[in-house]
Simulated scan of single mutants.
Amino acid sequence: MTKLFLSALTAALILSGCAETGLSKTQTGAIIGGLAGAAAGGATGNHSAKRVLIGGAVGALAGGGIGYYMDKQEEELNKELKGSGVEVQRQGDTINLNMPGGITFDTGKANIKPNFNPVLDDIAGVMTKYPETKIEVHGHTDNVGSDASNLSLSQLRAQSVSSALTTRGVGSDRIKAIGFGENAPVATNDTPAGREANRRVEIKIIPNPAQ
């Protein structure tokens, strides 16, 4: 059994080079899931090789399934949001949608611009097709104005987007709206371009561990 766990540990270290080997996110997820399942199988008290192998197989299926589920969402979001100004980013199994403030809200306002509504239609359409995820809507501002006013504005903007998604059929129990004010910049606030980048709303689509 010691050899089995040492082998699993060695394989885990090898995974750090997965990005260079050409493995897809789904394949990597399956390998990670398999290692986790093997460890869990060996920790149940029945230290048999059979139990470890079963645990690894179940874990691989779960890991690959999550990766595939998120891969399909990312693929559809990229297709639907092409040319919209919304940037689709992938971090592990989390999908991030970066929506610049200039295309979503007027300066100092929390009402969504009418011409952005079709984009929200597309985002909500994909989200309703993939219900086994959690959604966090993050509001951000630059540092112009007081801390209190920026925090309030970021919260209102996050809530506006959250409400828009709910109105379009996305379950409210899946969505959490959070305002960060000026506290999570992605660029310097010393230049107009940097401040513009910081004025944004982000949607994070996260696998639901309960599923």
Rank of each mutant, 00 (worst) to 15 (best):
Y68L: 15
G85S: 03
V201D: 00
P118A: 09
G101T: 02
T107C: 08
A57C: 00
K79N: 08
L6V: 05
A197S: 12
N96Y: 14
V88H: 07
G17K: 13
K176I: 10
E20W: 10
Y68N: 10
G92T: 07
N96H: 11
P100G: 12
I95M: 04
V170W: 08
E75N: 06
N78M: 11
A12N: 07
T44E: 15
P131M: 01
G67R: 06
G145P: 09
N189M: 02
L156N: 12
L77K: 08
P118D: 10
L4S: 09
T191E: 14
A57I: 15
S152A: 15
S163T: 14
T188G: 15
E87W: 05
N46M: 03
L4A: 13
T94L: 07
L6T: 11
E20L: 13
R168V: 06
S146W: 01
M1T: 07
L61N: 06
H47N: 12
T191I: 12
S84M: 11
S48R: 15
A30K: 06
A40Q: 02
M70E: 09
I95N: 05
K72V: 13
R90W: 07
G42R: 02
A187M: 09
A197L: 13
G83E: 03
N117I: 14
D147N: 11
I206L: 12
K129I: 07
N198P: 05
G22R: 08
S152R: 15
K134D: 12
Q89C: 02
L156D: 14
T28G: 04
Q89A: 14
L35R: 04
V137T: 08
G64D: 08
E136R: 11
S149E: 15
S16D: 05
Q211F: 13
N183Y: 04
A210F: 03
R199W: 06
M127C: 11
L23D: 07
A43T: 01
S16L: 14
L53Y: 02
K204Q: 12
N189S: 11
Y69D: 05
H140E: 12
A40G: 08
D147P: 06
S162Y: 02
V137A: 12
A164M: 07
N98Q: 11
G45N: 04
A124I: 01
L165N: 06
R195P: 05
G101I: 04
E196I: 00
S84V: 06
A43D: 09
E202W: 05
E132N: 14
T191M: 13
T107H: 08
A8Y: 02
L6R: 14
S48L: 12
L153N: 00
S7G: 15
G92Y: 02
A148Q: 13
V186D: 05
L153D: 05
S7L: 15
L81F: 06
L23Y: 12
Q73R: 09
G108E: 11
G29V: 03
D93N: 15
I178G: 09
T104R: 08
E20G: 07
A12G: 00
A57Q: 11
G101S: 03
F116P: 00
L53T: 03
R90C: 06
Y69A: 03
